[in-house]
Nucleic acid binder design. Structure first.
Length: 280
DNA sequence: GTCCAGGATCGGA
DNA sequence: TCCGATCATGGA
């Protein structure tokens, strides 16, 4: 037995599906059942054998305080799947395709910057840009990984330096957001007490954050699990299966999602997004 | 060479 | 309120 390994068992947990479904960007695949992730300043190795999941290095205490919530292990996903698939054959296929998806509870600041970068971009490039930012502006830890750069360090970075990381025209957005948060004009901790509508509106006051990016931030790092972000893929899959292939407005997608999935919209969207990216 | 990516902003109708 | 052009970048 090794002290820095924590093992647990879970149904509805597949590390590959969790990480490859587009909700987070700081991970590296070693094999189908073995990944590194970096979150909350820690680099973690995750190995999965059937329902057994091993995390290292970590401790019992750290698991309880950090990883348990990060992997959303307090939530009963089999119950959510039951509700979503009860009367919906599309959701039945989407859930069956990736029943091990879980919604991670990510750091708000990292999530905010990551999804500003995500706009009009693809996942492999988003991963690379974030890695560049971390290597250049983050702090190196003893395990050789780099922390996500703080608001202070990004607010002090030159636009040219941000562009050199591959951020392109988004560099200005990153810089402005970092300044607003570093100078205290925006307090992401305070945002946690806002209603979902107020939270979205507040996020969209930041230049570079529109409806979709705000929705991703509120779903992935403020635990508003009813939110259904509409990007090109979730729009495509909704139009294909729920609008007879007809093109509709983003507002219509939101209304339909609300009607179909209600407070489980965030989970539904993640199953559908992942399903669509592999089959549409 | 063109098209696309977990889109947002801006100006003009 | 809605529409279209534009934005920086790299992979397909």
């Amino acid at each position: 037995m090794n002290d820095d390994i924590f093992t647990f068992s879970s149904d509805c947990f597949n590390i590959g599906q969790i990480l490859e479904c587009g909700q987070c960007f700081r991970f590296d695949k070693i094999s189908d059942n073995e990944y590194y992730i970096t979150a909350f300043g820690k680099k973690l190795l995750i190995k999965q054998y059937s329902k057994e999941i091993m995390l290292s290095p970590t401790t019992n205490d750290e698991f309880e305080k950090l990883w348990k919530h990060y992997f959303d292990l307090e939530t009963d996903y089999s119950k959510i799947q039951e509700i979503l698939t009860a009367n919906d054959f599309v959701m039945r296929d989407a859930v069956e395709f990736a029943p091990g998806i879980r919604l991670l509870n990510q750091d708000t600041w990292e999530c905010l910057i990551s999804f500003i970068i995500s706009q009009n971009n693809n996942i492999s490039r988003i991963k690379k840009i974030i890695e560049n930012l971390c290597c250049r502006f983050g702090d190196e830890s003893s395990d050789g990984s780099f922390s996500f750069p703080s608001p202070k360090i990004l607010s002090e970075a030159k636009i040219k330096e941000l562009v050199q990381c591959g951020t392109g025209y988004r560099a200005e957005y990153i810089s402005r957001a970092a300044k607003k948060i570093h100078n205290g004009e925006i307090d992401l901790e305070d945002f946690k007490s806002l209603s979902t509508k107020e939270l979205g509106d507040s996020l969209m006051k930041i230049k570079g954050i529109g409806r979709k990016v705000a929705d991703c931030i509120t779903l992935f790092s403020f635990a508003r699990k009813d939110i259904f972000p509409v990007d090109v893929w979730s729009k495509r899959v909704m139009e294909h299966f729920y609008f007879n292939g007809n093109e509709v407005s983003i507002n219509e997608i939101h209304q339909k999602a609300q009607k179909l999935f209600g407070c489980y919209g965030g989970y539904a969207q993640q199953y559908l997004y992942h399903y669509a990216r592999n089959f549409l």
